[in-house]
Each structure stands twice: as C-alpha cells, then as structure tokens.
C-alpha cells in the first residue's frame, strides 16, 4: 500500500533516522535522502540547537515523527503537556503521519523510558485503542502503532501478539508501523514463527516499515539497533513488502552509529527487495 489513509496518502521511499552524529554531514553535504524520521521527544523542547537543526533539516527534507514515550498501552491517562508539545512539533514538521509504540512504560506519572510489552487481553486492547483514538483526535493526523520487541510474555495473555495488534488497530482504526526486526527478535525470544506474524496482520493498514539490526545473546536476542540488518530480517522485509506493497521504509541505527554514508547505504539495500516485488508485480 504505497499510499493510504494511515500515512497521509504519501508515497515516501526509504528513509533513515536523523541522529546527532550525522547533523554536520547532512547540513553541509546535503545528501539526497527520501526522508528522515525524527524521535519526537528529542525536539519537544522550547528552543536552542535541537529546533535550529530541525528547522534547517525541514528546509531541505521530508520529516516523519516517531515517538518513544506516548505509551498508548499504559493504564495512566494521557499526559496533556506531552500532547500539547507534540502538537506544536507536528505543526512545525508537518509530518504526514505520526508513529509510536504498542507498549506501556509509565505508571502513576513515573516513566521507565522503556517500551514494555502489553498483556495481550481484550481489555488491554480496548484501553490501548481508546488512547490511540484520543491522540489522533487531538493531533489531527493519522497515527501508526509500532510492534515492539519483547523479552517477556504474560500468563494472562489471551491471544498472540499479532492478534492483539490487529485488535488494537481495528478498534482504533489506525495504521501499523510494522517493525520486521522487532518481529524477528520476539519470534526468537518467544518461539513463534515470524511469518505467522507478518502473514496475519491487516496489510491494508501498514503505513510504514522499520528495519534494524539486533544482537544475539546466549539465551535471548536484544533489539540493539547497533548492527546492519541481518539476512533473516531482510527476508521478513521482503515478505512484508509482498503482502503490504511498497511501503515507506526506515532503517533504525541508534547505537555505535557509523558514518552517514554507511547507514544510508544499508537502508538503500531495501531497494533490491522493492525492485523484486515491482518486477514480479509487473510481470504478473
């Protein structure tokens, strides 16, 4: 679904995350990049260098906002100050859609700053969907929720993660930011087939895809975003493109960040899977 109502009917290509070590390169060399994804919270400030850099980036590039602390799944009420600042940023960036995670992370106003997995119950899905709707109504832009990588499962869960994701996005009538690396990480940590996940989400709601690298430990895999994308994740990406269509894709690289060119080159590897899909579609 190259353009749909969940990504503001845009047809963005392959983007990368805007990160501090690359600021100088981007601002001086002005490389050709389809779009940048920013972490909203890094720019929800009142002034100074973050906003100065952002404004310069906005003069040259398309920017999409991605959040890490909305916590749609927290039982807490939404933080109004957070929403107010986020809306100011949305006006500044004119992001065509906004994404955040299908997770929780705050309790009684205290923040873990982590993306904690949900118990997959119908009641939790209802609470989460309600909050997604509230955020969308307040911000007045399409919302896409991203599946997180996880290391725990709850006794109380009543369904699979992909069934829970489907339940939430259909109740909220919102989009999906499908993170295929997170699916792979969770599949290894929880012993499920990652293709069951990709095959069974509502593909017409996929607004964006994330790809990233991860780290393997003895007993589990950690979503570290500090490596190139691994082959099984590329294969999962190819499957996602086949099912959802050519979709705005973003490479996340957040730690041990190499040069801009290296990150961009890694992201552009997605093109080969997109070309394969386009070729097959054309010849069919």
């Amino acid at each position: 679904m190259p353009a749909n109502r969940f990504n503001g009917f845009t047809d963005y290509g392959i983007g990368i995350g805007l990160r501090v070590p690359h600021y100088q390169h981007i601002l001086t060399r002005k490389p050709v990049v389809d779009w940048f994804e920013i972490i909203s919270e890094n720019f929800m400030v009142d002034g100074g260098r973050p906003l100065e850099v952002l404004d310069q980036i906005l003069e040259q590039y398309r920017v999409v906002q991605h959040g890490v602390s909305m916590y749609f799944g927290s039982a807490d009420k939404l933080n109004r100050e957070h929403l107010r600042r986020l809306k100011n940023l949305v006006k500044r960036t004119k992001t065509p859609w906004l994404s955040d995670h299908l997770c929780w992370g705050s309790v009684d106003g205290r923040y873990t700053h982590d993306l904690l997995p949900m118990p997959y119950t119908f009641a939790a899905a209802k609470v989460t969907a309600q909050k997604v709707r509230e955020v969308r109504d307040f911000l007045e832009i399409p919302i896409a929720v991203e599946n997180v990588s996880s290391y725990t499962e709850f006794h109380v869960s009543e369904m699979t993660e992909w069934e829970f994701l489907t339940e939430v996005v259909e109740q909220a009538d919102c989009g999906i930011l499908l993170d295929v690396n997170n699916i792979y990480v969770s599949s290894k940590n929880h012993n499920f087939n990652p293709y069951d996940y990709v095959n069974n989400v509502p593909h017409d709601r996929v607004a964006q895809i994330h790809i990233a690298g991860h780290s393997k430990f003895k007993k589990y895999i950690l979503d570290t975003h500090d490596h190139p994308v691994l082959d099984p994740v590329w294969e999962l990406y190819a499957r996602a493109v086949k099912l959802a269509g050519i979709t705005a894709t973003l490479l996340e690289w957040d730690d041990r960040i190499p040069s801009f060119d290296e990150v961009h080159h890694e992201a552009l590897k997605a093109n080969q899977f997109i070309r394969q899909f386009a070729h097959k579609t054309a010849s069919a």
């Binding site: 927290s74 039982a75 309790v107 873990t112 009641a123 609470v127 709850f154 006794h155 109380v156």
Partner: peptide, 23 residues
C-alpha cells in the same frame, strides 16, 4: 496472586506491579 487483566483497573494493577519490580 496472578493478576487478571479484564479491565482498565486491572491493567493498571499489573503495570504497577511490574513497574515496581523494574524500577
């Protein structure tokens, strides 16, 4: 006792329990 999550309140209770351990 293993908590149930059949309501928003119970979701909050489970999250408070887990956040307490995490923090």
């Amino acid at each position: 006792r293993p908590p149930k999550v059949a309501s928003a309140r119970q979701l909050g209770e489970l999250q408070a329990l887990m956040a307490g351990a995490i923090m």
